[in-house]
Amino acid sequence: MFGGIDPGLLIASLMVASVPILFAAVGELVVEKAGVLNLGVEGMMIMGAVTGFITAVQTGSPALGFAGGALGGAVLSLLFAVLTQVMQANQVASGLALTLFGLGLSSLLGQGLFGIKPPLTPDVPFGPLADIPFIGTVLFSHDPLVYLSVLAVAGVWAVLSFTRAGLVLRAVGESHDAAHALGYKVRRIRVLAILFGGAMAGLGGAYVSLVRVPQWTDGITAGAGWIALAIVVFASWKPWRALLGAWLFGGITVLQLNLQAAGSRIPVEYLSMSPYLITILVLVIMSSGRGRAALSAPASLGQNFHAAR
């Protein structure tokens, strides 16, 4: 069944394929850990895709492009922050509205960007390391954002687990009333988390328009934000499991296309369903038998906080 598919190349491809959803998922994970459910990931990603593209084309620098993408995503998420943290609006509906708005706005901003090739993002030069069989392909032949996405996971994990800031963030997500009583600024912390989530989603979006596809067209993220949301749930709000989930999903997507290319006899329609079905299956296996493992959602998730006094 795996005849003709080089595992090294496959792993290298899946790492690249997963970058956009991984960035967005890690960002959303932090948002949800703070007790906020932002369903606007798709909208923030596509805003990042267009602002990143514009910045990179204007400045000629991919690095500035990614910064612009992150900024674009963060600015859009600020709208969500105002709605839910200041105006106490319903988070689910606000997030969905954010997606609608982001899709529309990105398309308006992107008019006139057709047929432009953005500046190339070079791979990190590892020199001879990249020529090592298998390991070189898997580990030393990527652009900087691939490494950054893994670092982001590690960073979020470290901050959430070992720092005071992480502790406070989790406290706010578990019980905003208790956190408030302890004197933490619940809303300020949540706004910061939302901005971080927006920036990460924007970064993921910019990766699509600058590296994965290198062009701008309307709707270019094509639903990646929704997958990112699912990955956060898949991960049970644990950073390393988000990495696992993104790689699993990206890996099966890449694998099914490779199987098609290698002339597998498995019918195409089943192959194209497989990323979704296998993700469900793996989650079922992971969440069953572990008692309450699946219920590890932050307790205040989706609830707005208003200090009585």
């Binding site: 598919i5 496959l10 491809s13 699509v208 094509a222 639903g223 194209s272």
Partner: peptide, 22 residues
């Protein structure tokens, strides 16, 4: 390779990559 979608640029990239690897 069938993408089974009208529009998903990232998937088209993956499909092309898969073929190149083959």
């Amino acid at each position: 390779v069938w993408a089974m979608t009208w529009f998903d640029p990232a998937k088209e990239a993956d499909a092309a990559k898969a073929m190149i690897e083959q």
